[in-house]
């Protein structure tokens, strides 16, 4: 690139900067033909503004109530699910009364992509997440003596053995808080008590493989049993086995599920399968992605995930339902760890 090219680029840049900042005339140094092209382009921009009804409605949805919480994304996409423990000051974890787009208000669930779903990004998330997990597992192995190390407490999470465990996050960012997925085994058992059964499944691929060590365990749960799996001590799957005869409305099921998800998990999509007998909800948790990266020893700056994975770690929740839509049998929650 010649110096002249660079000079023309700079001049055009300054010219357009001046225009967007309210200047009316052309930058004197700008190529007149290019300045004219910019002028014509702007004149062609006749995109209409939003209609007044939409502006009012959205404003009301966002700000219409003093009770409106910080997790306003839920206002657009998520059904009314109860919130796990939170302090009043943690605005991002508050839930809001869903506005018009709330599926719960429609009274019935349908196969639908919720606005904001990011199915393609799941592949990118997998790449990042697997990388973070590998680092995490390597780091854990390094600290704890490698293969065969017992399920162990996770550094950084032991400070608050409360029901919803919180961990430090980058300054100013959403903290990781969970009472289920993402906990260490020790944290989980501090919450639900000792297991009724434990089974070691070893490492997929054999003892020498890099794969995480998998442990399955069962725990008593309200109206059922938790059947969970740990990967190197990290809780990544919960199967909530309901007692026989227990049926739940979806709202009641959400009330059981929500505490098991990271506090910032956002509902991204819902879909029914097998004639409605299975309902799958896809969530994303950014705080979980950062937490895993933090555990892996990655240096984290800022609060935004790399482009394309802004929904964070994908989490699937699957509800088994009767014909009438009531949840019965089991509810499974699994965070996406690939493979």
């Amino acid at each position: 690139m010649t110096r002249d090219d660079r000079s023309r680029q700079d001049a055009l840049h300054r010219h357009w900067d001046a225009l967007v900042q309210g200047a009316s005339g052309a930058d004197a140094a700008a190529d007149p033909a290019l300045a004219e092209a910019v002028r014509r382009l702007r004149a062609l921009d006749d995109a209409p503004g939003p209609d007044a009804g939409f502006i009012r409605r959205l404003r009301r949805d966002l700000l219409g109530s003093r009770q409106t919480g910080g997790d306003a994304h839920a206002a657009v996409t998520a059904p009314p699910v109860p919130q796990i423990t939170s302090s009043p000051s943690e605005a991002p974890r508050e839930r809001v009364t869903p506005p018009a787009r709330n599926m719960g208000q429609h009274g019935k669930l349908r196969r639908v992509f919720v606005t904001g779903a990011n199915s393609i990004a799941a592949a990118a998330v997998l790449v990042v997440f697997l990388g973070a997990l590998v680092l995490f597992f390597q780091g854990m192995a390094g600290r704890e003596g490698g293969a065969g190390a017992p399920a162990s407490p996770t550094p950084g999470l032991e400070r608050t053995p409360t029901e919803a465990v919180a961990a430090a996050s980058p300054p100013g960012c959403l903290p990781f808080q969970s009472a289920g997925l993402g906990l260490s085994r020790q944290q989980w058992e501090a919450r639900v008590g000792p297991p009724t059964a434990v089974r070691s499944e070893g490492r997929p691929g054999g003892a020498g493989s890099q794969a995480p060590d998998i442990v399955s365990a069962s725990y008593p749960a309200p109206r059922g049993t938790y059947e969970v799996r740990f990967a190197d001590g990290l809780l990544f799957l919960v199967r909530y086995q309901l007692d026989e005869g227990v049926t739940l409305s979806l709202d009641e099921a959400h009330a059981l599920v929500r505490p098991l998800l990271p506090g910032d998990a956002q509902l991204l999509r819902q879909a029914e399968f097998q004639d409605g007998k299975l309902l799958r909800e896809g969530y994303g948790s950014a705080s979980l992605a950062f937490e895993l990266a933090r555990r892996a020893g990655s240096r984290i700056e800022g609060c935004a995930l790399p482009g394309g994975i802004e929904h964070g770690v994908p989490i699937n929740v699957v509800y088994a339902r009767q014909d009438g839509g009531l949840v019965t049998g089991s509810i499974s929650l699994e965070m996406f760890i690939g493979g």
Partner: peptide, 19 residues
């Protein structure tokens, strides 16, 4: 689509504003 997207943008912005 623009309304859906705009709703999401402001909801996310409001949620993230504390940070």
């Amino acid at each position: 689509a623009a309304e859906d997207a705009t709703s999401q943008v402001f909801a996310k912005a409001l949620a993230a504003l504390p940070a």
